[in-house]
């Protein structure tokens, strides 16, 4: 009997222990390694960095670390510009996503109840199809001789081919397209629960619709607006595929910089330093997001 209850307690303990251990080893430890390598020197070797950790040589370990890579990041204004333009592009895309997503989410929330679950499924469905393929589809549309130019010249709206591909505009279109479900779904979730009688009351009291919208709908939708914006902003800052396929060589983004440091320049320590930089930019939004999400899932107020 004693043996059985011990066994039971061990099994019970395993439930949190196994995923905890997995994430600890494959999520937390890798981060510490990135941090460590960002502080070490590059080497022409395989792997291309100097190992700075020897067991038992703690003093030597700390002695070998330096901020050289980070100094390099501050000296070359390429990284500064890339950081700035990533944040700018992500922030502006998030704003666009709100502008595009809100009317869709609002329309979904006002649709008859039996169509609503179908509409939700229709928003989710593109998310299940490959991200890469959805971005690839836009290459064919936005190219100078592409489908958009063909359609618009066919309609007689433009005479010259549109030159959108490989510009920042194409990146905005790509981000809005790819992230739209992440914006629409949290917005819909809050708008769907909204009490319509509030709007009716405001209308009865003589408030014009735009005013009711700003004073009632927007504040009530705030949790959805915050969740959706963070869900789009955070990954957009580090986006690689969209600027790479749609943005052309001029679009600077930090995720792309990391990729080229790693794959083209094979400077792993510098790539790690860029990763740490990206993480520093994102740590505050990620913490807020985690809080919002934990509150939403666990239903705490």
């Amino acid at each position: 009997m004693v043996e059985r209850s011990l066994l039971r307690r061990v099994t019970a303990g395993l439930v949190p222990a196994i995923p905890y251990l997995w994430l600890g080893v494959l999520f937390l430890v890798p981060f510490l390694i990135v941090l460590k390598i960002s502080l070490s020197d590059p080497a022409v070797a395989q792997p291309p960095y100097k190992p700075v950790f020897e067991w038992g040589d703690i003093a030597g370990f700390f002695g070998a670390l330096d901020l050289e890579n980070f100094e390099l990041l501050t000296q070359d204004d390429l990284y500064f510009r890339a950081t700035l333009s990533s944040v700018r592009i992500a922030a502006f895309s998030t704003l666009l996503l709100l502008l595009v997503g809100f009317p869709i989410a609002y329309g979904m929330a006002r649709a008859p109840e039996r169509v609503r679950s179908l509409l939700v499924a229709l928003v989710i469905l593109p998310f299940w199809t490959s991200f890469l393929i959805r971005i690839y589809a836009w290459v064919a549309i936005l190219k100078p001789e592409g489908l958009l130019t063909q359609a618009l010249t066919g309609l007689g709206l433009i005479a010259q081919p549109l030159d959108i591909l490989n510009t920042e505009t194409a990146v905005y279109i790509g981000i809005v397209y790819a992230y739209l479900p992440f914006m629409v779904l949290p917005l819909y979730a809050t708008l769907e629960k909204m009490d319509d009688t509030l709007l009716e009351a405001a209308l009865d009291l003589g408030s014009p619709p735009w005013r009711s919208f700003w004073t009632i709908t927007v504040p009530l939708a705030m949790p959805g607006i915050v969740a959706g914006s963070l869900l789009c902003f955070i990954p957009a800052v580090g986006e690689f595929v969209i600027p790479d396929l749609l943005g052309g060589s001029e679009t600077l983004m930090i995720g792309r910089q990391l990729w080229s440091e790693f794959f083209s320049n094979r400077d792993w320590p510098l790539a790690s330093a860029v990763a740490i930089l990206l993480l520093i930019i994102l740590v505050v939004p990620i913490v807020i997001y985690r809080d919002v999400e934990a509150r939403r899932v666990e239903g705490r107020p």
């Binding site: 890798p30 990954p235 580090g238 690689f240 995720g255 990729w259």
Partner: peptide, 18 residues
């Protein structure tokens, strides 16, 4: 929660280094 929003380049790089 972090890996879901973490830019993929960071997750990819950190796992590779590991």
């Amino acid at each position: 929660y972090a890996p879901m929003v973490m830019p993929e380049v960071i997750t990819g790089l950190s796992l590779l280094l590991f």
